[in-house]
Design a binder for these strands. Sequence first.
DNA 1: CATGAATGAGTCTTCATTCAT
DNA 2: AATGAATGAAGACTCATTCAT
Lengths: 209, 209, 209, 209
Amino acid sequence: MELNEKQIQIIETAERLFAERGFDGTSVRDIADEAGVNVAMISYYFGSKEKMMEALFELRVGSVKIRVESLIKDESLSPLEKVNMLIDEHIDRVMQKQCFHKIMMGVVATNKNPAILKAANSVKIRNAEVVTELIKDGQKKGVFKKKIDVILMMNTMVGTVSQTMMSQTYYREFNKQQDMPDEEFELLLKRRLSIHIKTLFKAILTNEA
Amino acid sequence: MELNEKQIQIIETAERLFAERGFDGTSVRDIADEAGVNVAMISYYFGSKEKMMEALFELRVGSVKIRVESLIKDESLSPLEKVNMLIDEHIDRVMQKQCFHKIMMGVVATNKNPAILKAANSVKIRNAEVVTELIKDGQKKGVFKKKIDVILMMNTMVGTVSQTMMSQTYYREFNKQQDMPDEEFELLLKRRLSIHIKTLFKAILTNEA
Amino acid sequence: MELNEKQIQIIETAERLFAERGFDGTSVRDIADEAGVNVAMISYYFGSKEKMMEALFELRVGSVKIRVESLIKDESLSPLEKVNMLIDEHIDRVMQKQCFHKIMMGVVATNKNPAILKAANSVKIRNAEVVTELIKDGQKKGVFKKKIDVILMMNTMVGTVSQTMMSQTYYREFNKQQDMPDEEFELLLKRRLSIHIKTLFKAILTNEA
Amino acid sequence: MELNEKQIQIIETAERLFAERGFDGTSVRDIADEAGVNVAMISYYFGSKEKMMEALFELRVGSVKIRVESLIKDESLSPLEKVNMLIDEHIDRVMQKQCFHKIMMGVVATNKNPAILKAANSVKIRNAEVVTELIKDGQKKGVFKKKIDVILMMNTMVGTVSQTMMSQTYYREFNKQQDMPDEEFELLLKRRLSIHIKTLFKAILTNEA
DNA sequence: CATGAATGAGTCTTCATTCAT
DNA sequence: AATGAATGAAGACTCATTCAT
């Protein structure tokens, strides 16, 4: 689906509002008002509110698949390096599109939109398959342990990042870093998250201390 | 707040529906119909839909604080044992009240209800303080590492459990365990989660392999 | 209809609230709460909200008829003295039961309750008949003019008093008498109203300057 | 606020119904049905039922101020002529917009809508000020008495007209004029009211018989 | 192509009243 | 005799969507 400039503008406003108030908590009028367009435009451009949500999903998720797959295929990297890059990619993706990831948590929790649910699941399955292959490769090369629960490991990565993203204001308060500039704090947070998860994964994957 | 039998019945129906469809996605009529009561009863008993949500929150969260604090004070347990018990307690709590935890993810994501948000935050802060003390105790006794990011560690526990709970159907499919009885699968899942997170925490907290 | 103590208590609370918020703007729950009784009592004692209103009307109006008629029959008074006494009686009645008269203005404006409307009309007609007789008596005695529009005259009395009662706060402000004690101001107002209306009536009824 | 044709249509239906049944006694559905429009239109056009009432008030009162002030400034008229014109203007205004004036009596009685109450008060204050000036002018010119209670005088005018308007059916019955055509009766009533009030005012204002 | 006007269905809440106790 | 619990009906209002222009 090709999106023109105005459609992008609408969809990004919707993304922000959905993240702030939830899908059902946001009216198309809210979106139209904030985006500075006519109410009828949402139906006109996307068919319905639901369909707009699907368009948003497609826009944000579409690119992910390709990047992951190409990363995996890179022959110049060791299995552990690949895993670490996956972690950093995920952290970057979530932190860059925080609104979208907040929305997705809500969408996955409620079974409302089957189209999105199905698409989200297929992405997750594809990711799991790719990572499983990567793990198997590491095991064959003798750098990874034998028994590894890939799903739980992925859940730890995804869950930790989501949880941290959702409660970053609180993290900031707890660590007394309210005065730090936003960008600097985000960089710090991403670095710490990266080290944290890599440490966890190393403990799961390898026999090293 | 004392809740009578009918109020509990209504609140539990609401809990399930909120988990399935979200707060805004569930109408009071839906709840009343499923609970087999009159629509007006929600306002009659709780004052409003919002207030009912707060009553649900209070009902589910009220007991948590006390249990955590008493666990921590138990002198007969080592710091690591306490941490491990905390993990198991959390897993049990989430898996037993899956609906409620799904709802909470949605509530925390959207800033809708300030009363709940505030209460939820105070619970989180109290928990973090308690765990921090526990960690400090372990450090003083020389069994835990010096530098530990308590918040990230907690985020890993909470995030992993939530993520796993949310996607358990998918976990089942991936591991080809659809034929396993529900209860057996849940037990298996909890055991694996427990071992998984304890392993992670050991890697974070101690110097052992 | 005999009213017991509790019924009087309810009816007087209702009277105040109806005056403040209008009949439809006051809920039976409001009345019950303020009167400190159970909600069901209103239906229990009066049958319905509407019937309670009728009971209130009967309570307040019942006594009026007799007093007016006996006044008229008093042989020791001149026609003008009788008219003047009628004026003072009316002023006293309205100022003493301000709440009730506020309500009546609303009831008469809207055609809601036929029972009350009919009763109110019969009171008005009876009064007009009595006054007409009184006027005729004065005319026969040669102290009153020939052509007198009794209705318009009565409307002036009733209208002036109502209007003044309704806007007394404003009258007080305009005349800079906010510091005067309530009771003192009410006395002043009644005296001025009395003189004012008697002056008007004299101009209508007699040929004197 | 500019009102389009449909808004006027709705507002005039509402005016009639409010006069017949009171503000709280009239539902937006009643108004919509009688005006032949969709229920949602009331909120769509005016924001709320309350706001519609305010729009009605503004529509009816807006023009009054200017007319009164310009009348007062007319140098070619004597003070008494001005007072008499004020009386006729008031009678015409009330008799022409009977519904609106019925509503206003209810609104002023109950303290419900602060916006309208405030606006109504400011109109009344302005009118009193203008009339006061007019009276002072007459006193300076020696045609009016020294001691005049402007407020009570105005209350007599407003009260008499309102009272007569409200009970005109009864006036008709009493005078056996049911067979007279409506328009003829209204003219008669206005003429009589005019003479009646002018007589009263002359008695208050001047020393003539 | 884009939109202002309009709407039917749905929202939550409040209402006066009833009924079992 | 008196009431707490309960309810169907109605309340005002918001919603996503449609349609004529």
